[in-house]
Design a protein around this nucleic acid. Structure first.
Lengths: 202, 202
DNA sequence: GTCTATATTGTGATAGAC
DNA sequence: GTCTATCACAATATAGAC
């Protein structure tokens, strides 16, 4: 039997995740989620009452993915260059496996900015760990003087943006060739890490 | 009289731009556009027939803004470092004046990827100008060996992402302080230009 | 828990008077 | 060109049988 039978709630959540991430809240339809889960539309309401409540469950999970758990790495005794390498690898690998996350989060946080403040208050994310790490390496003379916040935003920008802009990069620059885009992304871990380290290393 | 009376079509277009950019196609309502333009909802249909046609007019203009006219600069005889400075300044300045453009474009190109291929075919945008410029400077020995495409995407990433992620940066890292965010953006032209040039200069 | 049927509201779009 | 009234349909949500 191999446990093919999942419980309905989980099936709905997985279907809803696919639909919401692809279409966004406004573009998603309860009917489409039901079809995707191969169940009746009423069952979706039975389990989650409203579209809003269902969306909340999806958004919180997706948002937590957007901020990978690199906190442990940041608190470790590895040097800043190793930390950056792990940071970039983790981020890009996660987006390869969840390509819709970037546009989804960037769109939805603008639709409802207040929500993220609440979410982040309850999260264990602590960027100051990384800030401290950066400032220590500056005092060591390992890296050039720079604003830690700009460096962090630069790192995230370089990882996230190519996934959010995939249709432009692929459709315009890469002649709509999916294989070429995948190759571009595959190169990117090395490329981004090297780009950053060249810029900050003393 | 100072020409206070604009023609209705233009008024609708300006209202539609505000609503579509803030809410996206799926989130926008024809009623809200009419309210924003302070006219009757039917008039919007009278001038533009359908929501789709109205959206097309807005999207094309917004998309053309997303790709600033830096082509002339790229074809000029300025060196690569001046070109990068102008590129970054132009991009960031444009997003300061049009803060909704990044999320709007990134969301809509994913909703309808085919549209952008058509749009770009009809545009005069030519990234190869910049690629050639980069490769020449590599042969001159002015910059390190690198993949031109990755450099271009890096430059765009660093300019665009902070605007798309404003609610996260402001709400999470900057304690929801708008002034702090504006200061962060103001620093960014110098910061990004320096970050890039440090990384590629020989 | 799962289904069918239906209520209710929202929304794009049109008809027709002025 | 601009308005009021209204249509037609889509979408969220609920009622109630099984």
């Amino acid at each position: 039997m191999l446990e093919e039978e999942k419980n309905t709630e989980k099936t709905i959540l997985e279907a809803a995740k696919r639909v919401f991430l692809a279409k966004g809240f406004d573009g998603a339809r309860m009917q489409e989620i039901a079809d995707e889960a191969k169940i009746n539309k009423s069952l979706v309401h039975y389990y989650f009452r409203s579209k809003d409540k269902l969306f909340d469950a999806i958004f919180e999970e997706a948002f937590s993915q957007f901020i990978p758990k690199v906190a442990e790495t940041m608190a470790s005794d590895k040097d800043i260059f190793e930390k950056i390498t792990i940071f970039v690898d983790t981020y890009i690998e996660m987006f390869i496996n969840n390509p819709h996350i970037p546009t989804f989060i960037l769109h939805e946080i603008n639709r409802n900015p207040d929500r993220i403040v609440d979410l982040l208050k309850n999260s264990k994310i602590n960027p100051s760990l990384f800030v401290v790490s950066i400032m220590q390496e500056m005092q060591n003379g390992a890296i050039k003087p720079l604003h830690p916040l700009h460096l962090i935003i630069n790192m995230i920008s370089l990882c996230v943006f190519p996934f959010a802009a995939k249709p432009i990069i692929k459709g315009f620059i890469l002649n709509n060739d999916e294989a070429l885009f995948n190759q571009f992304i595959a190169e990117r871990k090395k490329e981004v890490t090297a780009f950053i380290i060249r810029s900050i290393k003393n």
